[in-house]
Design a protein around this nucleic acid. Structure first.
Length: 610
RNA sequence: GGUCCCGUGGUGCAGUGGCCUAGCAUAUCUCCCUGUCAAGGAGAAGAUCGCCGGUUCGAAUCCGGUCGGGACCGCCA
C-alpha cells in the first residue's frame, strides 16, 4: 500500500487518555494529562467537586473548581456513578495534609479544566464500590458490572498472570503450543459428552472434547516431542461450586520421558507461579509424594488436604476380640476399625456428636462409636458395656488422643471406613479451624492402581484413563493378577483439590491391547474403540507421557476463593444457565430442520402414569 | 433423580399470627456546602413481602404447590 492509499489515521472525536488512572505520581506534577475512566465516587461540595476516577489500573482523584473551570464544573456536577468521563487537567501535589495513603496515586490529584461525558450510566443494580455480598444471580446477570469490582478484577487478572507464566515457562523449554479440534467424536466412556449435531451428516453428531487425550498422544507419535495447549474441556455433568461444564486445562505431553521428568517440570513451574503470584506460604518443598495406598490409609482419600493432621489411625487391635459385634464382624469380613482423634471436643453434647455421626452415615458407614477423654481424666463412651475403662483409655491413648479429645471410631469395609473418616476428617478440619488459610499444601499422589472394580459390571475398569502405562514391575501382573497392578499415573493435589493429573502412557500396541482385554473388551470392540490408536502405535510410537493441570482450580486456590465462578469471566450458574447471555435457548424450527432434529415434547409423568 | 437452605423498596438486612399504615442501612432524586476521600447537612420518592392456592375474623409470618437462587448427595475431572 502506498502512502496515498493508506487511510488517514483514525482519530477519536473526544480527548483520549494520555495516562491511566493508576500511574500518576508526584514526579508527574505540573504535567498536562488526560484521563479516561468511570466515576467511582463523587464528593460534591458545592463550588468544589471531587471525583474518584477509576479504570482497570487504579483510581485517581480529580478536582473541579467552579471558579477556575465553570463549564467543567457544570459537567462534573451532572455526572453520576459509573458515568464514563474524559478529563483534562494538570497533575499537582495535593495540599499539605490531604494526601490519601490508601491510594497508589494518593499523593497527587488532577486539577481539571475540561470534563467530557463519554457515556452516561443508569444507577447500577448493585454498588460497584461496596464489598458487601450481593445475590450471585444479580451479579451474574450484570457480570460486566461485577467485573468492575476490585476483588473480581484481581482474580481475573491473577488467572491471566498464571496463564502467562505457564506459556512463557513452556515456550522457553521448546514446547510447541498447538491447537486440537473442538469438534470430535463422542466416546461412551467417562463423562457425558456435550454433543453437536451435524448438518452435513444427518443423524451424526460431533462431541466437544473432554480432553485432547488421544490427539496429544498422536502428536507424540508424530514426533513433536513437546506439546502443550491451554485446552477448553467439556463435560455434561451436574455442577458444583468447584465443578463447571467447561474448564481450562494446561495440557502437556512429552516424548522420551518418564514419570520423574513430568513431576519435576510441573513442580518447578508451580513453584515459580506461587513464588511470583501468591503471598501464601508453601507447606512443604519439594512437594511430598504419597502413594495412593498411603493416602487412603492416612487420609481416607486420594486428594488429601494435608494442611492439618487428624490422620486416620487403625484401632482394630485395641477394640476387637472383646465381644463388640460391630467391630469384630467388620474385621472378620475383611474390613477395618479405624479412628480419627478430634482435639478438644470431648465435651461435645449428645446432639453435637450426633451431627458427626450423621456425616459418617451419609458416607455409608453403619455408625460411629466415640471415646471421650474428659478434661478431668474420666472416660465417656457408649462402648462402656463392652469395655472396661482402662482398655478404653488405652485404646484412646494408642490412637493418639489426650485429655479433652474425642476419638471417633468407624468400622466396616475398607472403602467405607476410608470414605466416612476421610469426610469426617475434612469436616473437623474446617469446623475446628485447624486450617491456616494462607497455607498452600501441594502433594503428589503416585502409584495408583491401574484398574479398579467397576461398581456396575463388577469387572475391571481403568482408574485414570485407558492409555496409562503399568508401573515397570507391574507388566507381568497384567496377565497374572491385574487387580494388583500399579500404574504410572500421578495426581497433583493442592489444599485438598485435585488440580492436575496425568500418566506415562502405554506406548506399545501390545500392552494397550492387553489392558483392554483385562477390561473385558472383545477384539472387535477393541478395534472399534481404539483401533486408530493401536494402528498409530504400530508405526514407531515413542515412549511418552503427560499431564493435564486445572487452570481454573489453581486460580481459585491461589486467589483464596472457594468458588470456581469467581475466576471465570462469564460463568454459568449451578443449573448450567448463562445468566449474562441467556444460554441455553431454543432453536428456530428452520434451524432444527437443517440439523435433521425434531424436539420431542417431554411427557407429563403424572398425566401418563396409571 | 434426591436432600437441605434462601427469596421483604435498586442492593444488603430486621420483622415468625393482630402492636406492620412493613422498620433500618445504603443506593436514588432535590436543595445547601471551596479540601473531600465510606464527605457532611436538610428534605423526598421508592415494596401489592417471588408467584398461585389454602387455613384463619385477620397471613410477610402457618400449610400445600410452584418458580428462581445457592450448598450438597448421586454423577463427575
Amino acid at each position: 500500500m502506498t502512502p496515498a492509499e493508506r487511510p488517514a489515521p483514525l482519530r477519536a472525536n473526544w480527548p483520549q487518555r494520555t495516562h491511566t488512572c493508576g500511574e500518576l505520581r508526584l514526579s508527574h506534577a505540573a504535567q498536562a494529562v488526560t484521563l479516561n475512566g468511570w466515576v467511582h465516587r463523587r464528593r460534591d461540595q458545592g463550588g468544589l467537586i471531587f471525583i474518584d476516577l477509576r479504570d482497570r489500573y487504579g483510581i485517581t482523584q480529580i478536582v473541579i473548581n467552579r471558579d477556575e473551570a465553570p463549564e467543567a464544573h457544570e459537567a462534573a456536577g451532572s455526572a453520576r456513578s459509573e458515568y464514563v468521563l474524559s478529563v483534562g487537567g494538570q497533575v499537582r501535589a495535593r495540599p499539605e495534609g490531604t494526601a490519601n495513603p490508601d491510594l497508589a496515586t494518593g499523593d497527587i490529584e488532577l486539577g481539571v479544566h475540561t470534563v467530557t461525558v463519554l457515556a452516561e450510566s443508569k444507577a447500577p443494580p448493585f454498588e460497584i464500590t461496596a464489598e458487601t455480598n450481593v445475590d450471585e444471580s444479580v451479579r451474574l446477570r450484570h457480570r460486566y458490572l461485577d467485573l468492575r469490582r476490585r476483588r473480581l478484577r484481581e482474580l481475573i487478572e491473577l488467572r491471566h498472570e498464571i496463564v502467562r507464566e505457564m506459556r512463557e515457562y513452556l515456550w522457553e523449554r521448546s514446547f510447541l503450543e498447538l491447537e486440537t479440534p473442538t469438534l470430535v467424536r463422542s466416546t461412551p466412556e467417562g463423562s457425558r459428552d456435550f454433543v453437536v449435531p451435524s448438518r452435513l451428516h444427518p443423524g451424526n453428531f460431533y462431541a466437544l472434547p473432554q480432553s485432547p487425550q488421544q490427539m496429544k498422544q498422536l502428536i507424540m507419535v508424530a514426533g513433536m516431542d513437546r506439546y502443550f495447549q491451554l485446552a477448553r474441556c467439556y463435560r455434561d455433568e451436574d455442577l458444583r461450586a468447584d465443578r463447571v461444564f467447561e474448564h481450562t486445562q494446561l495440557d502437556i505431553e512429552m516424548a522420551f520421558v518418564d514419570r520423574e521428568d513430568i513431576l519435576q517440570l510441573i513442580e518447578s513451574l508451580y513453584l515459580q507461579i506461587v513464588g511470583k503470584l501468591s503471598s501464601q506460604t508453601l507447606a512443604e518443598v519439594p512437594f511430598p509424594r504419597i502413594s495412593y495406598a498411603e493416602a487412603i490409609r492416612r487420609f481416607g482419600t486420594d486428594k488429601p488436604d494435608v494442611r492439618f493432621g487428624l490422620e486416620l489411625v487403625d484401632v482394630a487391635p485395641d477394640v476387637t476380640g472383646r465381644g463388640f459385634r460391630a467391630f469384630d464382624d467388620a474385621v472378620d469380613d475383611g474390613g477395618q476399625v479405624k479412628a480419627v482423634v478430634a482435639p478438644g471436643i470431648a465435651g461435645y453434647s449428645r446432639r453435637e456428636v450426633s451431627a458427626l455421626q450423621d456425616i459418617v452415615q451419609e458416607s455409608g458407614a453403619a455408625g460411629m462409636a466415640t471415646i471421650a477423654l474428659n478434661d478431668d481424666g474420666s472416660i465417656r463412651s457408649p462402648l462402656g458395656r463392652f469395655f472396661d475403662e482402662d482398655s478404653l483409655r488405652a485404646a484412646a491413648q494408642n490412637a493418639g488422643a489426650s485429655r479433652g479429645d474425642l476419638v471417633c471410631i468407624v468400622a466396616g469395609a475398607p472403602e467405607i471406613v476410608a470414605e466416612a473418616l476421610g469426610t469426617l476428617r475434612l469436616h473437623l478440619g474446617h469446623a475446628l479451624d485447624l486450617i491456616q488459610p494462607d497455607q498452600l499444601a501441594f502433594v503428589w499422589i503416585i502409584d495408583f492402581p491401574l484398574f479398579e472394580i467397576d461398581k456396575e459390571s463388577g469387572g475391571y475398569t481403568f482408574s485414570h484413563n485407558p492409555f496409562c502405562s503399568p508401573a515397570d514391575d507391574s507388566f507381568g501382573l497384567l496377565y497374572s493378577d491385574p487387580g494388583r497392578a500399579l500404574s504410572k499415573q500421578y495426581d497433583l493435589v493442592g489444599n485438598g483439590h485435585e488440580i492436575g493429573g496425568g500418566s506415562i502412557r502405554a506406548h506399545r500396541a501390545k500392552d494397550l491391547r492387553r489392558i483392554y482385554q483385562v477390561m473385558g473388551y472383545s477384539e472387535p470392540e477393541i478395534d472399534d474403540s481404539i483401533g486408530h490408536m493401536l494402528e498409530a502405535f504400530t508405526y514407531g510410537a515413542p515412549p511418552h507421557g503427560g499431564i493435564a493441570m486445572g487452570v481454573d482450580r489453581l486460580a481459585m486456590i491461589l486467589g483464596g476463593t472457594e468458588n470456581l465462578r469467581d475466576v471465570t469471566v462469564f460463568p454459568k450458574n449451578q443449573a448450567g444457565f448463562d445468566l449474562t447471555l441467556g444460554a441455553p435457548g431454543p432453536l428456530l424450527p428452520d434451524q432444527l430442520a437443517e440439523l435433521h432434529l425434531r424436539v420431542r415434547e417431554e411427557q407429563e409423568e403424572s398425566a401418563s402414569a396409571g
